Amino acid sequence: MLPNVALIAVFIYRPLFQNIYYSTLNWTLGSKFATPVGLGNYRDFFTSGEASKVLTTTGIFTVATVGLTLALGLGVALALNRKLPGAGFAQATVFAPYILSGYGVGLAWLYIFDPNIGALSAILRDVGLNSPEWINSPPWTLTMVIVVYVWKNLGYAAVVYLAGLQAVPGDLLEAADLDGAGPVRRFFTVTLPLLSPTTFFLMVTTILNSLQAFDLLIAMDKLGRGARTLIFDAYLTGFKEQSQAGYSAMLSTVLFAILVVLTLVQLIVVERRVHYR
C-alpha cells in the first residue's frame, strides 16, 4: 500500500494543505513576495456582497442540476427498463453525452442557444417568439448552463438507476401485484424504497460533481455573467480578473469545506433513511 499512500499524500493532501496556507496570504499570482493576512481573505469575502451572490448562484446551480438529473435519470431508466428491440443501443445513446468533453459540449450548445443564428432561436421565431439573450442576461445564462449540464449528465444517473431497477426482486413486485397494488402504488411502495441505496449513491456523487463543475461553465459563460459559481469565481479571481492567488485559494478552501460538510451530512443523516436489502 505504501506507493499508493505516497502518491495520494504528494498529489492530493500536499496541494490541499498548501492551498489552505496560500489562502492566508495576500499574494498576486507571479509575484515573488506575499504578505500574511491570516483570516483576512475570509473576512473580506464573507463581509462583501460577493459572498451572498456567489453562494446563492452555487446553491441554485447545485440544487437544480442534482434534482433534475436524478428525476429525469430515473424517468429515463424506467423507460429503458423494458425488453424491447434496440434497448442496448438506446442505453448507449443516453449515456454517450456523459463521456463527452464538457468544454466541447458547451461550445456546441452555444450555437444552439445563439439568439441570432441558433437552432433554438429559429424554432422560437417559427412560433412567433423572440429568443432570450442567453449569454448576456445573467438569469438566462444560468438557466442555459443548467439545462446543458443536466442534458450531459442525466445519462449517468439513468444507467445507475437502470442497474438498480434490474436488481429489484421480481417476486416482491409479483406479491404486490397479487395484493392488488397497481403500477403506481408498486413503484412508490416497493421499487422506490428499494432504490434508496442507488439514490443515496447518486446524491453524493452528483452533488460533488455539480459543486466542482467547471469546464462546461467556462465554455458557455467565459466572463462569469450568470453562472459564477464558487469554483468558477476562484478561477476568474486567480487567473483572469485580478490575479489574486491568495484570495482564489481562500475561495477553493471554502468550497472544500462545503464539500466536506455536505458529504458528512449525507453520510450521517441521509444514509439513515436508506433501506439496504
Rank of each mutant, 00 (worst) to 15 (best):
L264H: 05
V127G: 13
G30Q: 03
E50S: 13
L29F: 10
R228K: 15
G40F: 11
E271N: 14
G102I: 00
L107W: 10
F17H: 07
G67N: 09
L124P: 11
L165I: 01
D177R: 14
I117Q: 10
A249S: 13
A163R: 00
P85D: 10
V265R: 08
V260E: 06
I258Q: 08
N19S: 14
A219G: 08
Y149C: 08
P139E: 07
F232D: 01
I60H: 03
S137L: 00
L211K: 07
Y235K: 11
G104D: 06
I117R: 12
T229G: 03
R185K: 13
L251P: 02
P85H: 09
V254R: 04
A119T: 10
V190Q: 09
D171Q: 02
Y98Q: 03
P3L: 13
A163M: 01
L39H: 04
V254I: 14
T56N: 02
I20N: 04
M1Y: 13
G182T: 08
T56L: 11
L267W: 02
I207H: 09
L211G: 04
G170T: 13
L16N: 02
G224T: 10
L29C: 01
T206C: 11
S121H: 05
Y13Q: 05
V150M: 01
A79S: 02
M1G: 15
A51C: 06
F33Y: 08
A92S: 15
T237K: 07
T205Q: 11
G170I: 07
L72M: 00
V269H: 04
I207Q: 09
I8V: 15
M220C: 12
D44R: 11
F95W: 08
L124H: 13
L259C: 14
I8N: 07
Y21T: 12
I60V: 13
T143K: 08
V269Q: 04
P193F: 11
T198Y: 03
G40L: 09
M250S: 07
E174T: 06
L2I: 14
K32T: 15
A108G: 01
R185N: 05
R125Y: 06
F239L: 09
T199F: 14
R225E: 12
L202K: 04
L216K: 09
G59M: 03
M250C: 14
L110C: 08
E271K: 12
G67T: 11
G86N: 04
Y98A: 08
S196W: 03
A122K: 10
V269L: 13
G75L: 07
T28W: 02
G170W: 09
R125G: 07
M203C: 13
S52C: 03
D126M: 13
V37M: 14
T263A: 15
A51M: 14
Y22E: 03
F239N: 07
L124M: 15
G88M: 02
V145A: 08
V190S: 12
F61W: 11
L142K: 08
K32H: 13
F33Q: 12
L251S: 01
L251H: 01
V66W: 00
L124Y: 11
V269N: 03
F89E: 03
A87N: 08
V254L: 11
P139C: 09
R43G: 03
D114W: 04
G40A: 06
A119P: 04
S210V: 10
T141S: 13
F214R: 08
M144W: 10
